[in-house]
Simulated scan of single mutants.
Amino acid sequence: MARKKKITQQDILGFYMDFVLENNERPKSVYALAKAYNFEEQAFYNYFGTIEVLDQQVFLEFFNSTLEVLNKSEDYQSYDSRHQLLSFYYTFFENLTANRSFVKYILSQHSNQLKNLKMLSHLRKSFKSYVKGLHIDLPDFKNKQIDSIQTKGLEEAAWAQLLFTLKFWMDDHSANFEKTDIFIEKSVNASFDLMDISALKSLIDLGKFIIKEKSIMN
């Protein structure tokens, strides 16, 4: 049987995800992936250098498809930074949920070390750039060095919050993942309230929710 020659990057990512789900393991080599889905091995190298980078690209695609949806929304364009970030979270986790079996398989092997996962490096870079582009209002200290540190701190805090939400979602067994939606709302609102120095009520509300859900999950 002649092998497929017209293979796109999206095709390869789809083949890879299907392979992982069908075999409960990653392909051992590019050859194994190409053979399983009947395409020329050379086609793979038109887009990727090694098979190890596919996980990074898959998570970046989840991010890119999220922004693609948001950027088509007129409502999103009119939102303030708080509601734009909320919209990002809801849409991003809808994408993850549509591919939950794959995401859980890949991440469950490193669920306690998400922060250091190389496979999330592209997502981390793109998400931090997205947060920076939201132009979230921060206290103005009239000092470039302090303001720069504050901006970088905000990006790192936002990334840590995304990882924490990802871990919560992985452990969530509620119908339609409604508890993750609640967590997103409470955590994002608490973060913005902190920056507005009106944090206490939201922070306590978030803390009560986390304690309650952790006791249930455990």
Rank of each mutant, 00 (worst) to 15 (best):
T66N: 03
L67K: 06
V69C: 09
L70D: 09
N71Q: 15
N71R: 09
N71D: 12
K72I: 05
S73V: 09
S73G: 10
E74F: 12
Y79N: 07
R82E: 06
R82F: 02
H83D: 11
H83C: 01
H83Q: 06
H83P: 01
H83E: 08
L85C: 11
L85F: 08
L85M: 09
L85Y: 04
L86I: 03
S87K: 06
S87T: 07
F88R: 02
T91S: 03
T91V: 11
F92N: 03
F93Y: 14
N95L: 10
N95S: 09
L96Q: 00
T97I: 12
A98D: 14
A98T: 10
A98K: 14
F102I: 03
K104Y: 08
K104A: 13
I106K: 15
S108Q: 15
S108K: 13
H110Q: 08
N112D: 15
Q113L: 12
Q113P: 01
Q113D: 13
Q113N: 15
L117I: 02
L117N: 08
K118C: 02
M119G: 06
L120E: 01
H122C: 05
R124P: 00
S129P: 02
Y130C: 00
Y130E: 04
Y130T: 02
V131Q: 03
K132E: 14
G133H: 03
G133M: 05
L134S: 07
I136R: 03
I136G: 01
I136V: 11
I136S: 02
I136H: 04
D137G: 09
N143S: 07
K144G: 05
Q145Y: 09
D147K: 04
S148F: 07
S148M: 10
S148E: 15
I149K: 13
G153A: 11
G153Y: 00
E155D: 09
E155H: 05
W159F: 12
A160C: 06
A160V: 09
Q161Y: 04
Q161W: 07
F164R: 13
F164N: 10
K167D: 14
K167V: 00
F168L: 00
W169P: 00
W169N: 05
W169H: 05
M170T: 08
D171G: 08
D171Q: 11
S174E: 12
A175R: 13
A175H: 15
A175G: 07
F177T: 07
F177P: 04
E178H: 13
E178D: 07
K179C: 02
K179F: 08
T180F: 05
I182C: 04
I184Q: 13
K186S: 04
K186A: 08
S187R: 01
N189H: 00
A190C: 11
L194T: 07
D196A: 10
I197E: 14
S198I: 07
A199P: 01
L200E: 15
S202Q: 01
L203K: 04
